[in-house]
Each structure stands twice: as C-alpha cells, then as structure tokens.
Amino acid sequence: MKIFEDLQTTAEIALVKNNLAEEIKELGADKLLQCNQCAKCAATCPLVLAGFPFFNKRIIQAILIGARETLLNDISIWACQSCNRCTDLCPRNVNPYEVILATRRMAVREYALPALAVEGIRSLYDVGHAVYLSESGNPRRKLGLPEKPPTTLSFSNALREVQAIMRKTVLADLGIIPMEESANF
C-alpha cells in the first residue's frame, strides 16, 4: 500500500501548488484527493469508448496538476453521461462523476459552457422543463392526452416556485440567462 500513500502525497502537494483542486472540492467533489489514478473508472467510461480526449481519470489528473485552461478549452466534461459506472467501481470512493459535475460548476463560473447547456437552463427557468418542444401539443392531443402535461406547464404557481428557487441560487449572480420575475405562457 506504500505506493498509494505516495500518490496521496502527490495529490496533496498538487493542492499546495494550485487552488484548482481546492475549488473543485468546494464545488461538491469532497473526495477528490482520495484518487490514486488507478484508472478503473476510465476502463468503464463511455467517454473513453466514444473517443473523447478527457474522461474521469484524466479530468482528475488535470485538476491535480492545476491545468485549468486545458479543462476549460475542452468540451469533454459536458459529454459525460452521468452514467455513474465509475461511482460504483471506484475502489477509493472518489466518486469521479461528482468530480466531473464539480468541474462543470467551475467552468460555468468562468462562463465556459456550451450554448446548448445555456439553452437548457433557460428553458428550465422559462417553462420548468430543460427539454421542451412547443410543437408537442398536437401529437399529445392525437394520443388523447391533454395538450400540456400536468407539470409546471399547466400550473403557473408551480412554475413561479421553480423560478423563485432558481433566483435564490448562484445562477442569479452569474447572469447566464435572463431571470425575470413572472412568466407568461
């Protein structure tokens, strides 16, 4: 187990040298420094199979050496499927998937997020659904379903609750999407 202890130390040295690891920890990846780069997570990761340059193991490695710009300039973190195979397999309980989500949170604070993500967030705020197809009313009606599902789309009070919650989060400070008080639909 000596080698694990050494690598743990490497991680700690990395922490002293850069504040990226500390920032990622605070954004939700509290077990980050338990990683010893064994790569079991990579062996099961769909990002690897699909050919993305960064995936769980390499993202953690980049964080530990403080390669902030490298991560910000690469799209891979946004392609994570959140499939959580790595969470189940990690022998050190690092929860690599949480690291990727925390890395996205870091990127969002640097305004390095894809346009499609902004669109999803905006749609979530405007109608309560990240994925929304305004033309879905007709196929729904043909199937004998109400044009709108019984969600925030049908209940304006419910949508206002969602919006009130979102306005109380860091999203309001970031100004990524317009967040007006009430919605008309």
Binding site: L27, G28, W78, C80, S82, L101, R104, R105, V108, L113, L116, A117, G120, I121, L124, G128, H129, A130, V131, P150, T151, T152, S154, F155, N157, A158, L159, E161, V162, I165, M166, K168, T169, V170, L171, L174
Partner: peptide, 23 residues
Amino acid sequence: EGQSCCPTWGTMPSIDLVGWCAL
C-alpha cells in the same frame, strides 16, 4: 400536479449543488 424537470444533469446539477437538490 406542478412537478418540474428532475432537473437534468446539464442544468442545475452543473451549476450549483444546493440549487439542484432544491429543485
């Protein structure tokens, strides 16, 4: 009645842990 998006990974989970859990 009044349920919203879960919310999905690319939205609040990618922005803020508490905001995600709140929705």
